Computed example of a mutant assay.
Amino acid sequence: MQTNQDTNAVIEIRSSPGKLSFYLLLVALCVGAGLYVIAIALDETAEDRAFGLGLGLLCLGFAGVAAISIARRLIQKDQVLVTLGPDGLHDTRVSERPIPWSGVEATSTWSSRGNAFIIVKVAPEVEASIGLSTISRWTRIPNKVLGADGLCINPLGLDVSFKDFRSLIDAYADAHSHRH
């Protein structure tokens, strides 16, 4: 994808079926690991069984939720997840409505455990007006405590590289946010 785009154009970014299939495989391995830990725990003594069952169920729960989320995105592979245009940035995983460029105060990169995110810092009144998704609302405070103070845009599984995605967001923000 070219990043020297006309910032008056509208760009639609979808899921990458290849990347999502790879992540689904990784999550399936985690589900298998959770089942394996549970199976081992069932053969242990009563004291050790509780810890193993708890750990296995926790792994199974998180990996199961991730598998369902990834599988749903694979089924809806033609759905646009992120739209960039003169009016704003809309990641359907983050909010119901676009983030207007005029409300973007800053963009930055934040990394945690090998995963990089684009952080979009917006004015509080803008954040309140765009209808944050449930996951964005739930993770907003923990992310801030960890150093990601803003809305986390995750390029994982999209059909664009992190570098190109970040460049596109910066180009549109610079062209339309009036924050120069």
Rank of each mutant, 00 (worst) to 15 (best):
D48V: 03
G52C: 02
T83C: 00
L156E: 12
V27M: 00
P17R: 14
A128Y: 09
A67K: 06
L84I: 08
S111L: 09
A63N: 04
A123V: 13
V31D: 01
I68Y: 13
L29P: 07
L89H: 03
W138P: 12
Y23S: 11
V82N: 09
F51S: 02
I70T: 08
G61P: 03
L53F: 07
G54D: 02
G88I: 11
L146C: 11
P124I: 02
S69A: 14
I13W: 01
G114D: 02
L151F: 11
S102T: 14
T92V: 13
I99T: 07
G18C: 06
D87K: 15
A41P: 09
E125H: 15
K144C: 04
G103S: 05
F51D: 00
L55Q: 06
T109I: 12
W138A: 15
E47N: 08
Q79W: 04
D149E: 06
S133T: 13
P155V: 02
E125G: 14
V31H: 01
R93L: 14
G88L: 11
P100T: 00
P98Q: 11
A67H: 08
I135M: 14
G34H: 05
Y36A: 05
V65H: 15
Q76S: 06
L42N: 08
T45C: 03
G103Y: 08
Y23T: 01
T92M: 08
F62A: 00
G147N: 10
R97E: 10
G52V: 04
F22Y: 08
L53H: 06
R113K: 07
I13H: 09
D78Q: 14
